[in-house]
Measured scan of single mutants.
Amino acid sequence: VTVDIKGMEYHFDNPEEAKKFAERMAKELGGELKVENGTLKVE
């Protein structure tokens, strides 16, 4: 699973970990979490 945090890509084997990480980063950065082509994106 790929997580894109404002252009920086992180790769996770575990989808649950990827989702938790993306949600935490969205909250910390005040960004919006989206799913695009199987990639979790925070913008």
Rank of each mutant, 00 (worst) to 15 (best):
V1H: 09
V1R: 06
V1G: 04
T2Q: 05
T2H: 06
T2F: 09
T2S: 06
V3Y: 02
V3G: 01
D4L: 15
D4S: 15
I5L: 06
I5T: 01
I5H: 03
I5P: 00
I5D: 01
I5Q: 01
K6Y: 15
K6P: 02
K6H: 14
G7L: 01
M8R: 14
E9W: 13
Y10F: 11
Y10M: 03
Y10C: 10
H11L: 08
H11Y: 14
H11K: 10
H11N: 06
F12K: 00
F12R: 00
F12E: 00
F12C: 09
D13E: 11
D13A: 11
D13V: 09
N14Y: 04
N14A: 04
N14I: 04
N14T: 12
N14R: 05
P15Q: 10
P15M: 15
P15C: 13
P15V: 13
E16A: 10
E16D: 12
E17C: 12
A18C: 05
A18L: 02
A18H: 00
A18N: 00
A18I: 00
K19M: 14
K19Q: 13
K19E: 06
K19V: 11
K19N: 07
K19Y: 15
K19D: 02
K20E: 12
K20N: 10
K20A: 14
K20M: 11
F21C: 02
F21L: 01
F21R: 00
F21Q: 00
F21V: 00
F21G: 00
A22G: 04
A22R: 05
E23V: 08
E23M: 11
E23N: 04
E23Q: 09
R24W: 13
R24K: 12
R24V: 07
M25F: 05
M25T: 03
M25Q: 05
M25P: 01
K27W: 13
K27R: 12
E28G: 03
L29S: 05
L29E: 03
G30K: 09
G30E: 07
G30H: 10
G30L: 07
G30N: 11
G30S: 08
G31I: 11
G31F: 12
G31E: 06
G31A: 12
L33Y: 07
L33S: 03
L33V: 15
K34R: 13
K34F: 11
K34S: 09
K34M: 09
K34T: 11
V35D: 08
V35L: 11
V35H: 08
V35N: 10
E36Y: 11
E36M: 10
N37L: 08
N37P: 06
N37M: 06
N37Y: 05
N37W: 04
N37H: 08
N37D: 09
N37C: 12
G38W: 02
T39K: 14
T39M: 13
T39D: 05
T39I: 15
L40M: 09
L40D: 03
L40N: 04
K41F: 12
K41R: 13
K41C: 09
V42E: 03
V42I: 12
V42M: 04
